[in-house]
Design a protein around this nucleic acid. Sequence first.
DNA 1: TCAATTATTTTTGTATACAAAATTGAAGCG
DNA 2: CGCTTCAATTTTGTATACAAAAATAATTGA
Lengths: 241, 241
Amino acid sequence: MNESLSKAQRALIHYGKLGDPENEAIYQQIFATIVDHSLPPGTKLKEETLCEIFGVGRTRIRKILFQLANDNIVTLVPNRGAYVAYPSVAEAREVFTARRLVECHLVRVVAAEQQERARPLLEEHVQRERQARQAGDMGAAIRLCGEFHLLMAELADSPILGEFLRELISRTSLIVAIYERPPVHNCEMDEHASLIEAIAAGQAEQAALLMEEHLRGIESRLDLRPPRSQEVDIRKVLSKA
Amino acid sequence: MNESLSKAQRALIHYGKLGDPENEAIYQQIFATIVDHSLPPGTKLKEETLCEIFGVGRTRIRKILFQLANDNIVTLVPNRGAYVAYPSVAEAREVFTARRLVECHLVRVVAAEQQERARPLLEEHVQRERQARQAGDMGAAIRLCGEFHLLMAELADSPILGEFLRELISRTSLIVAIYERPPVHNCEMDEHASLIEAIAAGQAEQAALLMEEHLRGIESRLDLRPPRSQEVDIRKVLSKA
DNA sequence: TCAATTATTTTTGTATACAAAATTGAAGCG
DNA sequence: CGCTTCAATTTTGTATACAAAAATAATTGA
């Protein structure tokens, strides 16, 4: 067989991007730890340390860090190493803009085409999140809250937008970790509940509106004013003395 | 300094994702060759061969292939190697859906907020594309046509949506290579021209509409009927004899 | 004492050697 | 002649050794 395009190729055997299941597991573990705020933004991720933790060589850790960088939750600085990403205010704003665009679209599709399938799936999920929150497991709660939004892509049968949304949601976690104002309940549960109602009723526009408000609500509970700590003109500050 | 978050980190030194400029150049070269249809979908990309071509070790080629896989224009099959991606019909459809969503949004923003800045930039670009086409350099024409669409993200100052769009556009190139019907002029030049008019006039809704039609036009000139070569039920076909 | 410079250590980047898996080609059997 | 089985070859996956760069510590001279 001299043919360049093999059947296996067309069949699209999707193993996750890292090929090996063990690599995938390590990736997921680091990913989860970043997203649930256990590793705060800016944390240095030294290769050697990760090697020891997971008992693998540097090659594999390197591949995983590169993947995380592609997810935009890790920043790779040449010759300096990997850090948990620290999104800027501008990035934060655009993440929310993009989320509104994508999620309003998805929720509209789901409400229009998948009302019946949606309700049980979504309600079961909200239920699980409620339980995690009551049990005090905030890590799981954050993860489940993100997954709720990802379910829209699943229901709309939109893997490409889903993958993009997955990125946006994990970046949102970092943004919240950096810019949250003291008393923040990330995703209000009752907002999810009323969203489910609109979807199940097939009210696409109403659902889109609720999603829009929901996301604006999250954004508005952050402190995204431009002039943050850095950005100070040393000259002006010091010339007062 | 024991601090985990360094100043260099915050400053976000964006070197391209591959760190080294030489790696970036190799990446760009392979990327361009795939997108301009020199390497057709399904082509096997053997590591050793690429090493010889570019005179570098396998480690670096590997990183570059991994990056291309993240762009979704290369598929990595575990233990089998890298292939130029071969998007399915379903993927093709979703790429166009996502493009309509993103590009209509961007063009609306540009028409509403950047009318004055937009016209000269866009017209100069269309001009260059026209020249390439007349010179018969179809590779450059394809590239420039894609860049025209990317300019919207630039003008709208939306790097995140821009990066996503960059992916979608390069995937479109593969899709066109696979599913085009005989006489296809990829992006109609005059459609771009009327789009520029609407933008420069600040007619956001009109511009969005034109973009929508433009993208639907491209999609409609493809042959995206579901039952393609594979997908045949062997039993049914053979039981007739 | 403090700043600048140099030496040392640490950490990342790349090539390469070796192991594992897949492909190819050759026998062997029906 | 076609099909399976097994060996030989090719190709990918990973660890590791070494080079390059950055961070840290020590030294020197005002």
